[in-house]
Amino acid sequence: MSIGHTLLGLLESGPRHGYDLKRAFDEKFGHDRPLHYGQVYSTMSRLLKNGLVVVDGIEAGGGPERKRYAITDDGITDVQRWLATPEKPEPYLQSTLYTKVVLALLTHRDAADILDTQRSEHLRSMRILTDRKRKGDLADQLICDHALFHLEADLRWLELTAARLDKLREAVTR
C-alpha cells in the first residue's frame, strides 16, 4: 500500500495537520497497524519536496509546532493517476508452503501432516477474523472478509495439494 498516496488522498478533502492525518489514516485503514508519526512526517517531507503538497500554515502552540498541509494540483493529479492504475495481482509464485511440502516428500516425511497442521493454523486465523467480523462494524467486516477470502484461497490450495500428494510424490522423487 502506498502510504504517500493514501495521505495525499486524505488531504483532498481539505488541509490537515500531520497528527490529524495520522488519526484519519489510523481510523480508516490502520486497524491492524497504526502509523508511526515519524512515518507521516518523513512521507510528508517527501511529498513537500516533490511539490505535491504545500505547507498551508504553521500553528505555534504549547507543544511542537504544527504544520498544516494542503494538496497541490500536481498532488491531485498524482492521486488520480494512482487510483486509476490497477494493482498488479500478486503472483504468489514463491510459496514457502510448497517448498515445505516438497521437502517433506523428498525426505519421506508425512506431507499430509504438514498440510493438515497448516490448515488448522489457517482455520484458527479465520476463526479469529470471523469472530472480529461478527463483533465489528461494516469496515471491520470488509477488511476481515478480504483476509478471509485470501486465507480461504490458501485453504483451497491446501485441499487440492492434499488430494494430489501421491502424484506430487511421484513427480518429485522420480
Binding site: D116, L123, R127, L148, A162
Partner: peptide
Amino acid sequence: ARVAAYSDREIVVR
C-alpha cells in the same frame, strides 16, 4: 473453510 470458521474446532475426514 469460511463456514467452518464459525466453528470452535474442526475435524477432517479423509
